[in-house]
């Protein structure tokens, strides 16, 4: 079976995908009083905490952009990255009964989880939009680049999710190490600080991180009215595409054995 054919087959499964996304969204907050509001509350609480720490105690210079806005434009896409990868990684194991009983293209599980988190991303983006209006940020024409940035961001998240969820079937160690990995990843990405604060000699190392150009590009286009810096962004685009393709192939290859070991 070649992968083009499989992708075509995956298209046939779009109804299943939408059912699985619905299941993920509906079931997540059942039996809770605030329900789906948690999707918005958690990032807002994070925003307040981080703002207090990094604009009152430790003052991070953000030029003429108020810190909460500076932070939130990066925190929203970052939260999507972290949540999607976290839930997708556990996603296969939590579908054990399906995987061992019924044949479905297994990639549908991480994809469904990432799509469910996409809904959260959309909702938190609306909050971000409201914040931008409240703070009187003018809307720049460069915001038209956002779909492009988002596209490669999504490829990266899907690719990493494919790889980690597949490994997690064989070694649950992944699940345990993941939160540490994501914390480190967040700190080496300019989410809570501007990229100018990175010491010059470390810049080449930081540049290897594909999330850095993506987060920078979101900020550049939303807050500063400048297009993504193409040199670093094209690196991220190539990296994300590669991770997506390799991740998918790796996942397909491993998925044959999921039912035997899960």
């Amino acid at each position: 079976m070649n992968s083009e054919k499989d992708l075509a087959k995956a298209w046939n499964y779009r109804e299943l995908l939408s059912e699985l996304v619905k299941r993920e969204i509906k079931s997540r907050y059942k039996q809770s009083i605030l329900g789906y509001a948690w999707v918005l509350l958690v990032p807002l609480v994070n925003l307040v905490v981080l703002t207090v720490v990094f604009s009152l105690f430790i003052r991070i210079p953000t030029g003429n952009i108020p810190y909460p806005i500076f932070l939130f434009t990066a925190l929203v896409p970052w939260t999507f990255t972290a949540n999607a990868i976290t839930f997708a990684t556990q996603g296969l194991v939590s579908n054990t009964s399906l995987i061992t009983k019924i044949y479905l293209p297994r990639e549908i599980f991480p994809i469904a989880t990432v799509f469910a988190k996409l809904v959260d991303y959309f909702l938190t983006s609306i909050i971000l939009l409201i914040f931008l209006i409240i703070y009187g940020v003018s809307f720049e024409i460069t915001m038209l680049y956002i779909p492009l940035i988002f596209f490669f961001h999504l490829l990266l998240v899907l690719g990493v999710s494919f790889i980690l969820s597949a490994i997690n079937v064989f070694f649950r160690d992944v699940e345990n190490v993941l939160s540490v990995f994501l914390t480190i990843w967040m700190y080496i990405t300019p989410v809570i600080y501007p990229p100018e604060l990175i010491p010059q000699k470390f810049v080449p190392i930081f540049n290897l991180n594909p999330m850095m150009p993506i987060i920078n590009a979101y900020r550049n286009t939303i807050l500063y009215g400048v297009p993504p810096s193409w040199q670093s962004f094209s690196y991220a685009a190539v990296f994300s595409t590669l991770i997506f393709i390799l991740g998918y192939k790796f996942f397909r290859n491993r998925s044959k054995y999921f039912a035997d070991v899960i």
Partner: peptide, 17 residues
């Protein structure tokens, strides 16, 4: 899925099948 209703589960499970 235990948290979903009978109706929701019918759609979910039939789609899976």
């Amino acid at each position: 899925h235990p948290e979903l209703t009978g109706r929701e589960n019918i759609y979910l499970n039939a789609t899976i099948l």
